[in-house]
Amino acid sequence: MTMTAHDLISGLAEQVALSLRDRIIGGELTPGLRLSETRLAAELGISRNTLREVFRLLTRDGLLRHEPNRGVFVATPSMAAILDIYRVRRLIEIPALAQGWPRHAAVVKMHAAVDKAEGLKAQGDWRGVGSANMEFHTAIVALADSPRLDRFFAQVVAEMRLAFGLLGSPEELHAPYIQRNRDILQRLEAGDGPAAAGELERYLGVSERNLMAAFARLTGE
């Protein structure tokens, strides 16, 4: 089957959209940041038409927002969106962990993420610690062996990073959870997935309350 020009543009736009999503997950693109169409198209080596398709895809996913006569901005999560993110995380992560196999390949990734977070903590790289934390939770979802869940959770991770990006102290946000991640991992490796899931449920409750309290202080909601 011959690919049309539209197919090529759409495929390229999807690839670039994934790349920009990764930059959001990495904390490089922060909430409220205005994206210059001219500068970004030149940086990415794509046409402005292709970039507009990228913007459309990421706006559809809630990661960007378009303001008439002002341009395109990285989205700023609302309190309702944060609550919904945690609701979704509980529905996905807790069952995946409870039923997780201790020798699953994803457990190696969980280990790597915790080790990485501890190393970055020693360097004072708290944005990097946040990225490692997201890698840890992505690996938890991978325990379910569902490519569809993996793809869906990548979107959730990007939205979570936007929520984290609203706060001024990434150390305060991420420091308490490095050891919690290690504890969850140890319970899973010991063959007690339900105990690991129980620890994760408590973890998510504390994380949600802390994030909501910080968000409320920031926005006055």
Rank of each mutant, 00 (worst) to 15 (best):
H6R: 13
H6L: 11
S10W: 10
S10A: 14
A13R: 05
A13V: 09
A17S: 15
G26I: 01
P31W: 11
G32L: 12
T38W: 10
R39Y: 02
L40F: 14
A41G: 06
A41H: 04
R48S: 14
L51S: 08
F55P: 05
R56A: 12
L63K: 03
H66F: 14
N69F: 07
V72N: 07
S78K: 06
I85R: 12
R87G: 15
A96M: 08
A106V: 01
K109I: 00
D115P: 00
G119A: 13
G119F: 12
K121S: 13
K121R: 13
G124C: 00
G128V: 03
V129A: 08
S131M: 05
S131W: 13
M134R: 15
H137T: 05
H137N: 03
T138F: 14
A142H: 14
A142D: 15
D150F: 11
D150A: 15
R151F: 03
A158N: 04
M160S: 08
L162E: 05
L162R: 06
A163S: 11
A163Y: 10
L166S: 06
G168E: 13
H174C: 07
P176W: 06
I178F: 04
L185S: 11
R187L: 15
D192F: 03
A197S: 03
A197Q: 08
E199D: 08
L204Y: 10
G205L: 03
S207T: 09
R209W: 08
N210G: 14
L211T: 07
A213Y: 04
A213N: 11
L218W: 07
L218Y: 14
T219D: 03
